[in-house]
Each structure stands twice: as structure tokens, then as C-alpha cells.
Nucleic acid binder design. Sequence first.
DNA 1: GCGATCGTCAACCATTTGGTTGAATATGCA
DNA 2: TGCATATTCAACCAAATGGTTGACGATCGC
Lengths: 118, 118
Amino acid sequence: MEHKLDAIFAALADPTRRAILAMLLEDDMAVTDVAAPFAMSLAAISKHLGILADAGLIARERRGRVIWCKLEPDGLRAASVWMQGFGQMDVMDLDAFEAFLQTADAQGDHDDLENQSA
Amino acid sequence: MEHKLDAIFAALADPTRRAILAMLLEDDMAVTDVAAPFAMSLAAISKHLGILADAGLIARERRGRVIWCKLEPDGLRAASVWMQGFGQMDVMDLDAFEAFLQTADAQGDHDDLENQSA
DNA sequence: GCGATCGTCAACCATTTGGTTGAATATGCA
DNA sequence: TGCATATTCAACCAAATGGTTGACGATCGC
């Protein structure tokens, strides 16, 4: 569990990676679309996504040519549990979080993304 | 606020530094006492403490020859606020946390440490 | 003042990190 | 089949990280 914390906090320590997580909070995205807003190469973004995936913060799934990235709802659990000891922070309600993500997905509120990358 | 997150998460990404924070959660400590349990030089620990202080996670105060290290109760706020968006996590109750630290301090439940380093 | 203790500073070193580019792999389309 | 798209891989580079050692500055006790 300790080593996981290393990877999670290290992953969160980079602003590009935090921005990627924030984007994925709104929608699942293809790698190319994740990379679009950033002033760096696709390969660099691919590396960032690898780091986020290794830390368990996102999952990647290939569908045809496109690799879709989505948040891993459980990913921040170890970090939140650790931080809990330093401020009476409530543990994340991950079940509610997962339900929220699935609901958003089912409602199809990311049509724009599906269209722009299909 | 962004740059603070970089520093905070980077500081938390190291197991030595997380261990130091956990030690300081129980008691304020002198640098030498912080270093004692670790298999590395005092200079290395001093660097770690500098990183924690730069991130706003601890404060150092010189009293005589000894520099006392203590948790900075507000230090994790930016990180917890950021993480809050990823799981309906409740923001830390920092006032309660600070009150808790001061209560523990007033109760003098760290005499052992004061003795071993006086 | 002197010697011991506390802690940092400076220089150095190996490893990791975050980025680049160009080639390679995998899939879809015509 | 053959080309375009999507993504990763490999090699490389500069800068940051985490550690070392030895010298230095502050402070205490005698």
C-alpha cells in the first residue's frame, strides 16, 4: 500500500496530469483528444497517461483504432485514506462517485467528444 | 494555487517525508529526533524537512540550539480541496484539526520526546 | 573562551523525470 | 492491397531528485 501512495502522489504532482484527470472527470476521452489542449507532443501525453494508469488513477481501453481513457473511481482511495489521518478528512464515498460517473455516462452528455473523434 | 499543489503532492510522494509527517502528527520534534529512526544522514533529513516546509506542510522554529518541527495544520488544505472534486470527498475540518493539535500539546503527552532531546 | 552539540550549506554523484524526435505497430477505410 | 489515422516504443537530452560527505555557523555548558 505504501508503494501505491508513492505512485499516486507522484502522479498528482504534475499539473499536466492533474489537468488530464480534470478533463476525464467530465468525459471519457481518446488519447488524441486528451492531448489536443496541451502544447506538447502526443508521445509526451502518452507517457503521462501511462503514469496515471500505473498509479491506478485511470484505465485505458482500446476500441478499434482509438484508445479510450477514463477515470478509475477507486484510484484515489489509498491517498484519501492516508490523508484522512491528517485532518479528519472524510473518506471518499467511492460508491457514490462510481454511480455518478456511470450516470453521467448513461446520459450521453459527452456526445461532442464522441463525434469529434469517431 | 496550482504551483502549491505541485509542491504539496511532490512532497507527499516520498515515503520518508510521509513518515516524518506521521511522526509530527503525534508530537512536535527536534530535527535530530526526526532523523533518528531513518537510515540516512542528518543532512538528507534536513533536506526533506526543507521540502516539507516549502510545501507549507510543516513549520520550523528555532529554540536555542534546537530547531523544532511541527505540522502546519493548514498545509494540506489546497490538496484536499483539489481532491474533493474527485470523489465527493469532504473538505478537511481544519479548525477541528488545529484544535486537536493544540489540545494534544497542552496535555503534555509528548514528555518522552522532550526529555530525550533536551 | 573551548569544546561538544545541533543543524544547514556546498559540492558532488547516480537515478529519475519530463520532454523531444523518428521509427514501429495496429487498426480502419477505400 | 495500400494508405491514412491512432498510439506507443526507443533513443536521446536537460533538469530535477535523493542521497553522500565535509566544512561551516550557532548555541549551550563548563
